[in-house]
Nucleic acid binder design. Structure first.
Length: 472
DNA sequence: AAAAAAC
């Protein structure tokens, strides 16, 4: 039933497409689509801000867009947090569109896609803080994240934003595996908002130390990954089942920068029939402020030399850098090579102790380290405004098809640079025909051309590349 | 042959 309704909207939406593409380049169109009563709102103030977002509203959802936070009926305490702590002035585009959908009755489920660094976290954090009843001392909102780092980062945002609200929160993430943590009897969570990772949340549910009776909001950050088979699909479904047994009034929010077609379909299936959707075309997802390059390297050693001579030599002038590698082992090897060459780099990957991971992230966020090597642990969601440069030491490939690119991960990785519209550059280090092919598949997928740095040995080539990306 | 969570 829900699927046919969505299908009909999509086909009708296509009929309107020429109208939006024929408009002038600055005048982008946000479409309002109502399943019952199909209309397009061209008067939306946010039309000229950036790219198209396709909105599908369901049922009789009154559609509106918030130009200011005042329009959202937020508590004075929450508004103070937004202005004083977060230093926000007005809602970003995704916030303006999604917040009314989240905060207005009948609190329909929402699937929302938006560009990297566009302020998704604030959408659901604000949503949770606003909908929670400060007087009711029990878990009311739950947010699931794919990594501990992201859970910590999100709870940090919640802490700041909710500083004056008195709303309590707890971070439900696992520690290191020891006999103590295994046996330790945990006391029930009384916090009103819980942010955590799948394993711990699941366990808390089964051992009944996470009460679900008053839960009214369930958020999946990086939702496409949380619902993907190769991600946390089983855990997510398990958690939803637990919640479904206790309450039927729980609003589900799915947020991510990426939703491939199969996850999109599955996501629409798991939310309740009547729900809202926001989507961005994949060709428009890659950020214009982040310039991407590819570099042909004859061998692995050349990649290390490129990093050493053409990138690290610029030092702090180019801001912070994240170097992505495919495996934990490559992370260790590359780390060793660069340290042996005398460079001060740090590395994070899932095999490290939680304590060390926390320390490395903190040092990087505090600006004490400039260059961080990482596995895809940090590919998603990691928010550090000073990161201007991302290096793909290895291209991201599908877990079961190493000849196929993982375009979603690629997009998430490059999104670590250029947070909130800042300038950024990406260097993809390619070695061999396979890399060439994977790279060209990525270009095709996003319908873009990636410029090649002519000579991996030529310093001037890299300087020119960084200059045109706005970094030097 | 694999990033991630966690027991």
């Amino acid at each position: 039933m829900a699927e046919t309704a969505a299908d009909s909207v999509i086909s009708k939406e296509k009929d309107y497409a020429p109208a939006s593409t024929s408009s002038t380049s600055e005048e982008k169109v946000v479409s309002e689509i109502d399943i019952q009563n199909l209309t397009i709102d061209d008067s939306n103030k946010f039309l000229d801000e950036d790219s198209n977002i396709k909105i599908i509203t369901s049922g009789d959802t009154p559609y509106r867009s918030a130009f200011t936070f005042e329009e959202l009926n937020l508590s004075p305490q929450l508004l103070k947090g937004l202005y004083v702590e977060m230093k926000y002035q007005k809602p970003s585009k995704i916030q303006a569109i999604s917040l009314p959908l989240i905060l207005d009755p009948p609190y329909l489920d929402l699937i929302a896609q938006a560009h990297n660094g566009s302020g998704k976290t604030a959408c659901f954090t604000l949503g949770m803080l606003s909908r929670v009843d400060p007087k009711l001392k029990a878990p009311q909102a739950l947010c699931c994240c794919p990594t501990r780092e992201l859970a910590i980062q999100n709870s940090e945002v919640l802490r700041k934003m909710g500083k004056y609200t008195g709303i309590t929160f707890e971070c439900a993430i696992g520690g290191d595996f020891t006999t103590e943590t295994r046996i330790k009897k945990r006391s029930p969570i009384t916090a009103q908002v819980v942010i955590g990772t799948p394993g711990t949340i699941k366990r808390r549910m089964t051992e009944k130390t996470l009460g679900l009776s008053y839960l009214m909001m369930l958020v999946f950050d990086e939702a496409d990954h949380m619902l993907a088979k190769e991600g946390f699909k089983d855990d997510s479904l398990n958690m939803m089942k637990h919640i479904g047994r206790v309450t039927s009034h729980c609003q589900v929010l799915l947020f991510s920068a990426t939703f491939n077609e199969s996850v999109k379909k599955f996501a629409a299936k798991i939310v309740k029939g009547n729900h809202n959707e926001l989507f961005v075309k994949k060709e428009e997802l890659s950020l214009e402020s982040v310039i991407q390059y590819k570099v042909d390297c004859p061998d692995e050693l050349a990649k290390v030399m490129v990093i050493k001579d053409q990138i690290l030599e610029f030092g702090e002038r180019i801001g912070q850098t994240i170097i992505f590698v495919r495996t934990r082992n490559s992370a260790i090897m590359l780390h060793r090579s660069l340290v042996d060459l005398g460079y001060d780099v740090t590395t994070i990957q899932g095999a490290l102790k939680q304590e060390d991971r926390d320390k490395i992230v903190k040092e990087f966020k505090d600006g004490l380290t400039q260059v961080l090597i990482s596995t895809d642990l940090l590919a998603r969601g990691f928010d550090q405004q000073q990161v201007n440069l991302v290096i793909n030491y290895n291209l991201p490939v599908k877990y079961d098809h190493s000849t196929e690119p993982d375009c979603e991960v690629y997009l998430h990785r490059i999104g670590r640079a250029g947070r909130f519209g800042r300038k950024g550059a990406v260097f993809n280090l390619l070695c061999g025909d396979m890399d060439e092919m994977i790279m060209s598949k990525i270009e095709t997928h996003f319908d873009m051309k990636i410029a090649k740095v002519p000579d991996w040995r030529n310093e001037e080539d890299f300087k020119a590349a960084m200059r045109s990306a706005g970094l030097l």
